[in-house]
Amino acid sequence: MSKIHVTTSVNGDAVEFLCDPRETLLDVLRDRLGLTGAKEGCGTGDCGACSVTLDGRVVCSCLVLGAEVEGHEIGTVEGIATGEELHPLQRKFIEHAALQCGVCTPGILVATKALLEKNPDPTETEVRYWLAGNLCRCTGYDKIIRAVMDTAAELREAS
């Protein structure tokens, strides 16, 4: 089966890869590009652990084909921090104990960062509905929501 050559950008880096047409963007990120931050929790777009941004919009990378990203821009959890400086969301998630096992965390961070860029002052309800596609089984979401609200407040103050 012939493979498809794809040129794209991941976290600002130019990237090329070959993939089978059936491979998902998640497969490509993890198995071909060594970016294992995005996780496969379901493979059906129901858990959000594989969330990445595609041209700035949050998507499930398990529901995007590798072949589809030719010429697009991908953002993953590995690209959220700037050098050694964590993004405020990353810092607040640690401070608020907003992760237990941490496997949903990359997807939640990617999704939340996109939310705060779009809506710097979300209500608790807005955060909860925005994150409804990011399943967390450990925390009951309480501390996640608090971390997001606190980050939003800090970012608003800083801007």
Partner: peptide, 13 residues
């Protein structure tokens, strides 16, 4: 914490 918010923590897969 740091490993888990940056995506470098190594899980089973």
């Amino acid at each position: 914490g740091l490993d888990k918010v940056t995506g470098r923590a190594k899980f089973g897969a």
